Amino acid sequence: MSTPATTSKSAPQRPLSPFMIGPYYKPQMTSMLSITHRITGLGLSLGAILLVVWLSCLAAGPDCYALIAPHLAAWYGKLVIFAFTWSLLYHFCNGIRHLMWDLGKGLDMPTAEKTGYAVIFASLGLTAGVFVLTLV
Rank of each mutant, 00 (worst) to 15 (best):
I21D: 00
T111R: 10
W54R: 13
I49P: 03
L103S: 09
P62Q: 08
H37L: 09
A66L: 05
V52S: 13
H91Y: 11
V80M: 12
P15N: 14
F121T: 07
L51V: 12
P62Y: 13
G41S: 07
C64L: 07
S56Q: 04
T127W: 09
T3N: 12
K114C: 04
I49R: 13
P18G: 10
D108E: 12
I35K: 11
P12G: 08
S45K: 07
H71N: 00
Y76T: 01
G129T: 06
V52M: 12
A5M: 10
H91C: 01
A122C: 04
K114I: 11
H37G: 05
A74S: 04
T36Q: 04
S8H: 05
E113M: 06
A118V: 03
L58G: 00
Y117K: 11
L44A: 08
L124D: 02
K105E: 02
A48W: 13
P4Y: 14
A5G: 09
L51P: 00
L133C: 06
L50D: 08
I81P: 00
L107D: 13
M1W: 14
L133H: 13
S45L: 13
F19I: 07
L99N: 05
A59T: 00
G125P: 02
S87Y: 05
C64W: 01
Y76W: 10
P23G: 06
T111C: 03
A112F: 05
R38G: 07
L16M: 15
K114W: 09
A128I: 15
L99K: 02
G61F: 11
Y65I: 01
D108C: 06
S2I: 13
I49N: 04
Q28N: 06
L103T: 14
A73I: 10
I96F: 12
M29V: 13
F131P: 00
S17E: 15
L67W: 07
Y25T: 12
A74F: 01
A59I: 03
T85I: 02
I49C: 10
T127K: 01
K105G: 00
L16Q: 14
M29R: 07
I49T: 03
S17W: 14
W75H: 01
A69W: 08
G116K: 04
